[in-house]
Amino acid sequence: MKAIIPILAILSLLLVACGQTAPVEEKSGETLGTADQVVTINSFKFSPAEVTVRTGQTVVWKNQDSASHTIAIDGTESPELFNGDTWSHTFDTAGTFDYLCGIHPSMKGTVVVE
């Protein structure tokens, strides 16, 4: 009987500690905005490969492929996008932004910001 007391004490401490754990990690990535241009990913290709937007506008990438992809653009990289996932990026400066898939660097595209 005496052996049960420390066991119960440990279990009580564990339950108390449960309430003090860190929050569940959430999927990182930029907040989805209104899409001004949508680029779909299919068969290891970006379609269309080149899109044009104005400054302040947002491009949304939608993965419709059976493999995961990322978008490496403008010094940032999206989280790994699985089938059905989307990721968006807003362009605040004019210019031509070449991007690629971080997993498959042969997949390339361009965003022209006017």
Binding site: I7, I10, L11, L14, L15, A17, C18, G19, T21, A22, P23, V24
Partner: peptide, 19 residues
Amino acid sequence: WFCKKGHFPGFAAGLVFGI
């Protein structure tokens, strides 16, 4: 079920397994 957050429940379950 009892503790949904964090990594701690895994070690708690492990401790119970050890006990």
